[in-house]
Design a protein around this nucleic acid. Structure first.
Lengths: 246, 246
DNA sequence: TCGCGTGAGTTACAGTCTCTAACTCAAGAT
DNA sequence: ATCTTGAGTTAGAGACTGTAACTCACGCGA
């Protein structure tokens, strides 16, 4: 990718960074973000504590790196569904939601790392929002085909204003739907995506943090019901509308 | 309340515990659960570090205490709406959801403490589940009046089985709805409550952890839309059904 | 191929935090 | 009036983050 010049030292450095991140990821999986400890990583790599600060400025920097990877990975998982362009928006929504849940369930701690409670004292780098929105992009595409019911129109209205005032929002929309912010469908897409995100996050995070334990339902069923209801509220069609391919 | 015998020593002890908890609560509000540090609390109270271990067995014990209070407080906030028995189930749902959001928004860190990512190494005491269910109890009452639409029936089915197999679930239902687990309305109530919980948590936790920052909508609007949709999916009536008062 | 800059690594240490051990002391129950 | 018990103390072990000041050898440029 951006391998402008790759000297032996650079390569060695990259390799060590990767090794550190791999161990950090394991610690994350074993005990959550709090369990990621530079000292212990160093011991495992075979270095003395302070050596790690050659590779990451501090603990937050290491976590940021894990967070970025996680967002990118999630975006890929969700995006790969969007790329296949399933038969209908309805189906697409179901598949996207499944992919989201599937990704999170397969690596609960990584999900909690990016979507759980904010880490104490941690402040996210600037591009985090963009990465987060990349995960939700494919949902925009689906909901752009919808016709919002009465019940969700207040939200559509609020987001219509946003699309027209916020350049980043407009760019996000353009990238995934090709729509201009003035288009009614733009606001519809935003409303659908926000609703879907909110419901996905609710169900997935309760599942992943074990709060459904002992309750007699599967998260998958719950999520499917929610997406059906959402599809109904936006009257998602059973076929993709005509559009310029490419 | 349970003041069986209150010796001077007991009173002093209770007062000190309360003071410790008050400071802990402030630290929680200032920097999240991770920022609650016994050492610093001790300094503030004017004691030396280890003295605090006379009052709380360890850090987790202190946090458990805060967690219990938070659940009880939330249950009271939500329950006070349920007690007023608003004009209709539909209205009731809206008011309950508002109360939930309102409580959480007013004290974000306490919300994250009980509903955020699990704390590293922390294992909740046994009665936590019961306390959590007390918060959701009033929702059972509302959804017991519903008629589930097609889209949510898979969830109702799964929860019907649960109600009939799990004694704790049955007891929960009985307490808030008076229904026996065989009753169809029991499963409906459970499904509604679980859906509502999931959606409340999604919206509230994204709001409270600041992930909506920079997006052009209010959490309140989002939540209202969701509750409307949910009310529609359960065909919540505009009047309470007849029932034995008492 | 030689030399030297730079980056990788070291030890030592300061500071924060949790929690245990072993002790003192006085309030209050009997 | 006694003596039990609980509140408080200091000392200290063990993790962890992060800084300072140092050594050393790799590998780039002349």
């Amino acid at each position: 990718m951006t391998a402008a010049r790759t000297s032996p030292r650079d390569r060695y450095r990259e390799q060590t960074r990767a090794e550190i991140k791999a161990i950090a990821l394991r610690q994350l999986a074993e005990g959550g973000a709090g369990a990621v400890a530079l000292t212990r990583i160093a011991r495992e790599v075979g270095l003395s504590g302070p050596a790690l600060y050659r590779y990451f400025a501090n603990r937050d920097d290491l976590l940021s790196s894990l967070i970025q990877d996680a967002y990118d990975d999630a975006a890929t998982a969700v995006g790969s569904v969007g790329d296949q362009l399933p038969p209908s928006p309805r189906t697409s929504l179901r598949l996207l939601a499944d992919a989201y849940l599937g990704w999170a369930a397969a690596q609960p701690h990584r999900y909690l790392l990016i979507q759980g409670s904010p880490l104490p004292g941690y402040s996210a780098p600037a591009d985090t929002t963009a990465r987060a929105r990349a995960v939700l992009g494919p949902f925009l595409q689906v909901f752009a085909t919808g016709e919002p019911d009465e019940e969700v129109r207040p939200l559509v209205a609020e987001l219509a204003a946003w699309a027209q005032e916020d350049e980043a929002a407009a760019a996000w929309l353009r990238e995934y739907t090709g729509l201009e912010p003035e288009d009614d469908r733009a606001a519809t897409a935003l409303a659908g995506a926000v609703l879907a995100w909110s419901q996905l996050h609710g169900t997935v995070s309760l599942e992943v943090s074990g709060q459904y334990a002992g309750m007699g339902h599967r998260a998958r069923t719950l999520l499917t019901c929610q997406m059906s209801t959402l599809a109904a509220a936006f009257r998602l069609p059973d076929d993709w509308p005509e559009r310029a391919t490419g």
